[in-house]
Nucleic acid binder design. Structure first.
Lengths: 189, 189
DNA sequence: GGGGCCATGTAATCGGTTACATGATTGA
DNA sequence: TCAATCATGTAACCGATTACATGGCCCC
């Protein structure tokens, strides 16, 4: 139920419309908790129905500006203080690694070097983002910078690991070669 | 559509029943791609309907043993060779960091130190797992070890980052204090 | 006038989780 | 005999994605 708390968290910092929130999701939170337009609008209606937020003003084109209510603030703080995030599951990039034995060694290596490069590129993008928000002293940016630093370290670590793993392919393949083998690519003609 | 390829990947290494696969998901893949029982069984039926796997034997209690077909092998290799994983979204632990300004500094710090400790514990668990599978030379274990190394590095990196971030709280709070402030906890009496 | 942005919503579908339901076989 | 394990399936629900649908407002 984290989208709910993401919306609450944003409205705790500034009142805004669904359209306003969408922009924030697309910029500040895109690497952390992306949300689609339809999801944001229906969550706003659900939160309003539950009394955690309220319409504070209406504007042109049916614009509805929402503010967080006391109940909403309480719920946000309860979530932050009393619950802990679940471990991160469903890591597709890592799932693939398990099955790399299905590919010829050079293709397996190619995947890992691609992963390394993709993470170096990612790191560069984050560095640019960091420069952009350097002067921002709003709360969201202050704490967002901590999250961004995580992104930087993660990209660096992943790139290093992928390069290391690419080098391990030869070791693995020599173990496989030293077996009266079945499985893997053994069905090839 | 990764569950589909996870099942294909496992059946590429050994024929097995839904029950057999469940055990592998619960052990080898639990940190990477968990799957529920109902999901595995319905995916097996779907894969069989699509001709990517086939029932190779039946046993007691309605046991159905599946093997991967040539089409299935082709699809698995196509997935590995021609598609690339999407970036990892929806990281709840990081979403929370953005909203830590809603908590008093000591509670924000507490969250980060908890994160650091949780990752140190995680690392220890992975080290134990590593020792357990040390002698296993099946393909799944060979490549699985690369993924495990990722887990180890990730836990170490995250723990270090969280400890670093916890130390940054004071800096952030002094920026906030030096503002004729609104937002955050400013609504408190 | 018209293009681009502001603004909100609905519907279909998908992948995943949880709970429910059932029963056969094996071995102590 | 009876508990543990093997074994497969269905149904309800939830969160998320994608596509569709509509229209007002602002400024050039």
């Amino acid at each position: 139920m984290s989208l709910r708390h993401a919306v609450l968290g944003l409205l705790a910092e500034f009142p805004g419309s669904g359209y306003d929130l969408m922009k924030v999701f697309d910029i500040s939170l895109r690497n952390v908790w992306p949300a689609s337009q339809s999801q944001v609008y229906s969550e706003l209606n659900a939160l309003a129905a539950d009394g955690l937020i309220a319409v504070s003003a209406t504007g042109p084109r049916g614009r509805k500006e929402y503010v967080i209510t006391d109940d909403g603030t309480a719920e946000l703080r309860r979530w932050l203080a009393e619950t802990r995030p679940a471990r991160n599951f469903h890591v597709e990039g890592l799932l693939r690694v398990h099955f790399l034995g299905q590919l010829p060694p050079d293709q397996a290596r190619e995947y890992l070097t691609w992963l390394a490069e993709a993470n170096i590129a990612e790191r560069k993008k984050l560095r640019e983002l960091e420069a952009e928000i350097a002067g921002d002293t709003r709360d969201l940016a202050l704490y967002g910078r901590l999250a961004l630093e995580y992104g930087l370290r993660n990209a660096a670590m992943t790139a290093e690991w992928a390069a290391w793993a690419a080098e391990r392919i030869d070791d693995i393949e020599s173990v496989r070669a030293g077996r009266a083998d079945s499985g893997g690519r053994s069905d090839e003609k």
